[in-house]
Simulated assay, not measured.
Amino acid sequence: MDITPAWLRERGLRAVLFDLDNTLVPYKTYGEAPQGLLEWLEALKEAGIQVMLVSNGSRRRVRYWCEKLGVPGFGPAGKPWFGFRKALRRLALAPREVAVVGDQLFTDVLGGNLIGAYTVLVPPLSKREMGYTRLVRKLERWVLQNPSLGLAAWGNEEFDPKEPRQEPTISKE
């Protein structure tokens, strides 16, 4: 919730594509939205920032949270390869005008960078995850802790609202 309308505008960003599980809400949870989440999303929308959920979660789960949070979205999105382009078409924006915010390097950040969006990697809200995701987390940590790979710039900068915008690091070539 540290991502503010001012921070987004300073970077020329007009929309945010959010991952759902462990980014906005803990994995597999239903019920009430976490404290402050609805107000924060509403503040983004009131500032003219478009918001959309792009999730690999089930259609039923994504629909539930879209209704609960009052935002559009879809799933399963097939990230990193699919979903983000569909979202760009729905928003009618260029990739450079869109931020992708998520908790996973190989789905959210990679997918966002593949389309040329600004990416923000956030820590997961919960340690509860699918077994597959727990395995991938080990690879993520290794990649992010191994600067010689040159992959740490995939968007895993420490989130600092005062930092200037950096261009995506993965080209489409």
Rank of each mutant, 00 (worst) to 15 (best):
E163Y: 08
K68F: 12
A77F: 05
L144K: 07
S148V: 12
L37K: 06
P161Q: 02
L135W: 14
A153R: 14
P161E: 01
V54M: 04
K68A: 15
Y118S: 07
G112N: 06
E140Q: 10
A87L: 03
Y118D: 03
E32A: 10
D103N: 11
N113V: 06
E158G: 10
V25C: 06
G102P: 07
T133A: 15
R96A: 12
L38A: 12
P123Q: 01
E163P: 05
A152E: 08
L8E: 00
R90N: 00
Q145K: 14
W142L: 14
L110K: 01
N113S: 08
L24Q: 04
G150K: 09
G70K: 03
R85S: 04
W142V: 05
E32Q: 13
Y132R: 14
V109Q: 00
V51S: 00
S126Y: 14
Y64V: 11
L125A: 06
R90F: 01
S148Q: 11
V54G: 04
F106Y: 15
L17C: 15
L151M: 14
F159Q: 00
A6T: 12
P72V: 00
G102W: 01
Q145G: 10
L53Y: 02
K172P: 13
F18W: 14
R63M: 08
G150F: 12
P147C: 06
R137M: 04
R96C: 09
V100L: 08
K86F: 09
R61C: 04
E10D: 14
P164I: 04
K127N: 06
P76E: 03
Y27K: 09
A77T: 03
G155E: 02
L114D: 01
E163K: 15
G31A: 07
V120E: 02
Q35P: 06
M1Y: 12
G48D: 05
T29I: 07
M130Y: 15
W65N: 00
R59H: 13
E167V: 09
Y27N: 10
P76S: 04
R137V: 04
D19M: 14
Q166A: 12
Q145A: 10
P124L: 01
A94Y: 09
R14F: 04
A6M: 06
P147W: 05
T119K: 07
W65L: 11
A77K: 02
K68Y: 08
L24C: 08
F74S: 01
V100P: 11
L144F: 06
E32L: 09
E140C: 03
P76W: 12
A117E: 03
N56D: 15
L24R: 03
D21E: 08
M1G: 13
A6S: 08
L37W: 11
N156Y: 12
T169F: 15
G70N: 05
L17S: 02
D2K: 15
Q50F: 12
